[in-house]
């Protein structure tokens, strides 16, 4: 049982965005979804991106997740310039460096938990035995050791999201990118999921939450607010973790430590 030391300014930069813009052509007019955003995210940060709809929050998330490339500006991920990468290179970055958690879970309906969690490893070219082992391991870590062979429709919403989190973790990514992870869950289950994120953070993971709910964003140590395609405020309370009693039992904690 070991906790990774909280991040500070000396942690390595994972994400370095400089002045990126994104324009969409919608019919006749051009929509400026992002109008020049600069953002730096270090390893083991817990960051929330907030903003009302239309603020460019989703667009920024797609950029951060390497699902899309900016119209202009520079984006370096772990020191590699990804702003002009081709589709398949981006796919490889997503596969190895980014763990996605979606609001709607996005599990494969006909595959059991194990198979769902294995999927990123299939695309990474990991052999079947290791795949199985690692998938089972992370599923146990998120408290689903007894649900390995359940299909999504045999699981509760909270359990499905745990499978999705396990899937995000299985490739040991540089960041976990969660898009409204509690949006489809009741508040109690939502709290459990947030506790899980808290735990992952304390174990050294870098977590980026995208949300419009303030009380969800409150779990993060740093909050970036977007409005009209630019950053309105960046409340980076570094060291926030020192103020938290680490030994506090977390609500609904189901995480088993390594």
């Amino acid at each position: 049982m070991s906790l990774v030391t909280p991040s500070g300014l000396d942690s390595p930069l994972v994400i370095d965005i400089e002045n990126i813009t994104k324009d969409y052509v919608m019919g006749e007019e051009i929509v400026h979804a992002l109008r020049g955003v600069s953002l730096q995210i270090r390893s083991n940060e817990y960051l929330a991106i907030m903003g009302p709809s239309g603020s460019g929050k989703s667009t920024l998330m797609n950029m951060l997740g390497c699902l899309d490339t900016p119209s202009s500006g520079r984006y370096e991920f772990n020191g590699r310039d990804v702003s002009s990468m081709a589709d398949d290179e981006l796919a490889s970055i997503r596969n190895r460096e980014i763990g996605f958690v979606f609001q709607t879970f996005n599990l494969l309906p006909r595959a059991d938990s194990l198979h769902n969690v294995e999927l990123p490893l299939v695309y990474a070219g990991v052999d079947p035995e290791t795949r199985r082992e690692r998938a089972a391991h992370v599923l146990r870590e998120v408290g689903l050791g007894d649900r390995l062979y359940h299909k999504p429709n045999e699981l509760s919403g909270g359990q499905r999201q745990r499978v999705a989190i396990a899937r995000a973790l299985v490739n040991d990514p540089s960041i976990i990118l969660a898009d409204e992870p509690t949006g489809n869950l009741d508040s109690k289950t939502g709290d459990e999921i947030m506790a899980l994120f808290e735990n992952l953070y304390r174990r050294g993971h870098t977590i980026i939450l995208v949300t419009h709910e303030a009380d969800i964003a409150n779990h993060a140590r740093r909050t970036v607010r977007l409005r009209d395609g630019i950053i309105e405020s960046d409340d980076d309370g570094f060291g926030g973790i020192e103020n938290l009693p680490v030994e506090d039992p977390l609500p609904g904690d189901a995480v088993v430590y390594r």
Partner: peptide, 15 residues
């Protein structure tokens, strides 16, 4: 959506 998910998880075009 499944295709989108697979792509997010690292499936390439060829896959």
């Amino acid at each position: 959506r499944e295709i989108g998910t697979r792509k997010a998880l690292g499936a390439r075009r060829r896959t």
